[in-house]
Amino acid sequence: MTENIESFIKRDDTAKEMVKFAEELAKDIVRDVSTSQIRNAYGTVKKLEMLSSFSDKSLRELLLLKPKLAYARGRSQRKETFKKLEDALGSAIDAVDVNQPETFKRFCNFFEAILAYHKANGGK
Rank of each mutant, 00 (worst) to 15 (best):
M1L: 11
T2Q: 14
E3V: 13
E3T: 15
E6C: 01
S7K: 11
F8Q: 03
K10V: 15
K10I: 15
R11F: 15
R11E: 15
D12V: 08
D12Y: 08
K16G: 11
E17Y: 08
M18T: 06
M18Y: 06
V19C: 04
A22Q: 01
E23P: 02
E24Q: 15
L25M: 09
A26V: 03
I29H: 03
D32T: 11
V33G: 05
T35V: 13
S36K: 14
S36M: 14
S36W: 13
Q37I: 02
N40M: 09
A41G: 15
Y42M: 08
Y42Q: 09
T44E: 15
K46H: 13
K46D: 14
K47P: 01
K47A: 11
K47I: 10
L48P: 02
E49A: 09
L51V: 15
F54P: 05
D56H: 10
D56E: 13
D56R: 07
S58Q: 05
S58T: 15
L59G: 06
E61I: 02
L63M: 07
L64Q: 13
L65V: 00
K68Y: 14
Y71D: 12
R73P: 02
G74N: 10
G74I: 06
R75T: 10
S76L: 06
S76E: 08
Q77K: 13
K79D: 12
T81K: 09
T81A: 12
F82M: 07
K84N: 04
K84R: 08
E86F: 10
E86C: 00
D87R: 10
A88H: 07
S91F: 13
S91G: 07
S91W: 13
S91P: 02
D94E: 14
A95V: 05
D97L: 05
D97R: 08
N99Q: 12
Q100G: 04
Q100N: 14
P101S: 02
P101W: 11
E102P: 00
T103C: 00
F104H: 02
K105T: 11
K105A: 12
R106G: 08
F107R: 01
C108M: 05
C108Q: 08
N109R: 04
N109W: 03
N109D: 10
N109M: 05
F110M: 05
F111P: 01
F111A: 06
A113V: 04
I114Y: 02
I114S: 00
I114E: 01
L115W: 10
A116V: 13
H118K: 00
H118E: 00
H118P: 00
K119Q: 12
A120L: 12
A120W: 12
N121V: 04
N121Q: 08
G122Q: 01
G122K: 00
G122F: 04
K124Y: 11
K124C: 04
K124T: 11
